[in-house]
Design a protein around this nucleic acid. Structure first.
Lengths: 193, 193
DNA sequence: GTCTATAACGGGATAGAC
DNA sequence: GTCTATCCCGTTATAGAC
């Protein structure tokens, strides 16, 4: 339940963002959303065309938040290698999984272009941004010449996404940490070649 | 619809395995299963206590299949490095994702110990098996001394699991290939240190 | 063992009052 | 703008005939 100074529309979007992260699209009902937002049926159908429309707005908002979070790590302090390792190591709440990545296993999302688009674009953006940082590292001779920046970036992002899967399966964040630590170790070694 | 020489029970389990892979647990209804198996309501409730019981049997069967598939790659021909790379590179149908990994984003599975158990055990087994292969590689001096086999194995399995996520988001197997090629490249480099 | 009929419940959307 | 009442449909399970 949100504070009164947020508009009903905002409370609806926020509640939907949370539920999409926790349970996914198909498993989230309008009733769940309304209860968490402290709103009635009418409000939702006044502000949005329906569940899908609201979910679309919520996903776009979550996508923007994820980009902002990742951007801070990748454009922050330190050398290119430091920043890639910051992206790997500073993920929080690994048991919650990825707001965007989890949607790829929701059949309704895959089948609905408006819902898949923010997911596809955001993950694509993360890979592209890591690729840019690694390319910079190659220019600065922190990574060897001939490094395939896109392959390396794909591996880095996949390690994070897959680390979430392993941690959720074991219900243990240590499984995530082992994966990203393994990737960070290899990257450090690669940069010293 | 399956051939007549399979028992109804077997057809139910097989149909459920397929649907769990394609859509997950919550999104699969008994009706879907019965239609694909070519059976009626009565058959299912005769052989199984309900949807959850049938899904449990199907997941156990899929888990065994996945272990068999992975085992062939990891205990097959070649040096430890070759076998780890075979595991990375010989995944098929990357757009389908992982039978077990996908279940970690299904809230009902997480909340049901009988359903989560095969998922957790199988992914744990894969990481442990890759760890063993890498440890062997360290003994044989194919990997440097001081290599953390468990971290490296976690990274390898996470890359595969995350590669599925990236490929499904883009609806393009190339995203999977880039991730596993990146991991394979780093591993080769690491083994030559 | 397998079938159909039915029931109880919840999801998602609409209607119309306030 | 927000509320409640209502509707239609699909999911899951049960009952009982064959």
């Amino acid at each position: 339940m949100y504070s009164e100074d947020m508009s009903t529309r905002t409370r609806l979007v926020n509640a939907t963002q949370e539920l999409l992260w926790e349970r996914g699209y198909a498993a989230t009902s309008p009733k769940d959303i309304l209860q968490r937002a402290g709103a009635g049926q009418g409000s939702m159908y006044h502000h949005f065309a329906g569940k899908q429309d609201l979910a679309s707005a919520a996903l776009e908002e979550s996508a923007a938040m994820m980009r902002a979070d990742v951007d801070i790590l990748l454009t922050g302090e330190g050398s290119p290698l430091d920043r890639v390792i910051a992206y790997l190591e500073r993920q929080r709440d690994s048991l919650r999984g990825c707001r965007m990545g989890r949607m790829t296993y929701d059949a309704d999302v895959l089948a609905t272009p408006e819902l898949l688009r923010p997911v596809a674009e955001t993950l694509q953006w993360v890979v592209a941004t890591v690729t840019t940082v690694i390319s910079r590292g190659i220019e600065e001779h922190e990574f060897p010449e001939g490094t395939d920046a896109h392959q390396l970036a794909s591996m880095v992002v996949a390690t994070v996404q897959g680390g979430y899967v392993l941690a959720r399966a074991q219900q243990d964040p240590a499984a995530f940490d082992a994966a990203v630590d393994g990737a960070a170790g290899l990257l450090r070694s690669w940069s010293r070649r």
